[in-house]
Design a protein around this nucleic acid. Structure first.
Lengths: 152, 152
DNA sequence: CTCCGTTTTGAGACATGTTGCAACAAGCGG
DNA sequence: CCGCTTGTTGCAACATGTCTCAAAACGGAG
């Protein structure tokens, strides 16, 4: 008998977190959660809508975006903006981190909190500003693209 | 006789810069440039379209955005993305700088290159990554909003 | 001044989100 | 099991950009 433990199954944990806040567990939210457990790394809003539609073609964008907002409040996803401003969702971040994005080749990397510490601490000290690291995307040119640009 | 010196008038300088690259000087570009010389600080794309329409109601969005792209190539404007991903244009930046944006009160500040140096240098050293500081917006909570949040 | 090649423009479709509002339904209490 | 209350959904309109393509026009050559 394969029964999932509520403490381990992320979908069940999300459900409990919602209920604990007086929010509701709906088929739409369940569907998106199922999409999310199968996603990894970064996904755009459009991709999530696309995948949710494969399960249920009735899926509407506004519900997806609203659900993502709720899940972000719960800390289950976080979002930042790519170099072009499009939203990118990061699912179940193991640790808080920022992103690095190359404007030329579009590759991205993660910047762990420790690596950004010098800046976030400086801002906290001099301005009392609390940086939202998860939302941060640093763009520029990666080492490879920089070399290519020099060659021109 | 009030004649403008080409070396001083920013609109004339933009015109020359365009021509030097084999690009053309059109009424639409001139109109946007005139809007820009009267703008200061940060403006969103929508605001620029709005203002350009006050001069010429025929102004179309695609032309405005394309012109802004061209002017960014020339270094006359730069753009970054606000906390919600919307474009924000910075006109004739005196110096390269990043932005700080409070997610709660929407206030913004500028971060001079020296202040961000610790991070940009670290990324250059460890990853060979060249940060595009002008495009960078760091979001989070400012000192005031952080206090308010604590109070809740 | 006219012609021509090339760059720009404008129109409209499309992409990605956001928002207001009326209808719906989750989950609680009887 | 039935109704209520209140959180959610879906629709449709809007907001902000981007892209394609034919038509217009800049600006240099003749």
């Amino acid at each position: 008998m394969k029964r999932k433990s509520a403490a381990v199954d992320p979908v069940a944990r999300a459900r409990d977190a919602l209920r604990a806040r007086g929010m509701r567990w709906t088929p739409q939210r369940r569907a998106l959660l199922e999409v999310l457990v199968e996603a990894s790394g970064h996904v755009t809003g459009a991709e999530l809508i696309e995948r949710a539609r494969q399960r249920d073609p009735e899926t509407t964008p506004s519900t997806v975006y609203r659900t993502l907002d709720v899940l972000e409040d719960l800390g289950l996803v976080s979002h930042s903006h790519g170099h072009d401003g499009r939203e990118e969702f990061h699912v179940w971040p193991a640790s808080e981190h920022a992103h690095l994005a190359c404007e030329a080749c579009r590759a991205t990397w993660e910047i762990e909190a420790t690596e950004a510490l010098a800046m976030t601490e400086a801002l906290a000290r001099t301005r009392g500003f609390a940086v939202n690291l998860s939302h941060l995307t640093v763009s520029g040119l990666c080492a490879d693209c920089r070399r290519s640009a020099d060659a021109v």
